[in-house]
Amino acid sequence: MTQDLARRIRINALSMVARARASHIGSALSIADIVAVLYGDILRVDPRRPDWAERDRFILSKGHACVAVYAALAEQGFFPTEWLDTYGAVDSPLLNHVSHTVPGVEFSTGSLGHGLPFAAGKALALWTRGQTSRVFALLSDGELDEGSNWEALLFAAHHGLSNLTAIIDFNNLQSLDTVDNTLRLAPLADKFAAFGWAVREIDGHSHDALREALSAVPWDGKRPCMLVAHTVKGKGVSFMENKVEWHYRAPDAAQLEQALAEQGGGADA
């Protein structure tokens, strides 16, 4: 099921950025599987009641990858799929960084490094109220250059916010170059562990691995959870995979056709 959702997320995302001539398709394809498993199997949310008090909260901190989330929300019924066709139009409700005015979106981002502190605040408030809702935040790897994340990592661990799970989309590419050539994060899992989080590392395109890890949070019942998901930027479109240029470019008609053809129910999608 989630494989099909991921496939539809990729198809929608590609069509949206092609039509809008928008950037960041590589960033969206990188998280299509994570988002599909979250919305397909993990998050307790109700499309008819986006504000349902008992829902799980999902924060997309890497807001530039918004098309993946918009596509997932539309496919899950939070708003009509026709809205996706308006992406890039001046009066579209779907801005090019994830926007809280869209049903199902908790928080607007776009400036990197804002999602985790906000998610920690939500987790803290829910915990203070004794609510069982969980908070999931999806971050990029380049985003971890921002010190605000490390402030939040300290805080969440100190307060044992076990209702908070962060997922790192570790595709090892950022805006200009690889993470390794920009600001090295390795050994990333060790850093998080040293900060006091429960850490797991998985293949971020394996739905089974994602499901297994995310359905078992909190892993030790007392610490916040950090899922380091190894991914490929541009995943699922052969000529986009692991290429910095697809952080910026939008596919032309021929490229879109090829990219969509590669989604035809193949091994990954």
């Binding site: 908790e106 928080f107 490094g113 804002h114 985790l116 502190p117 906000f118 998610a119 920690a120 605040g121 939500k122 987790a123 803290l124 408030a125 829910l126 109220r129 010190g147 605000s148 402030e151 939040a152 300290l154 805080f155 307060h159």
Partner: peptide, 21 residues
Amino acid sequence: FNAGVAEQNMLGLAAGMASEG
């Protein structure tokens, strides 16, 4: 809560808590 000497996180936390009422 004492957020520590970490004002960016303090404001993010505050916003997150306020979003929950």
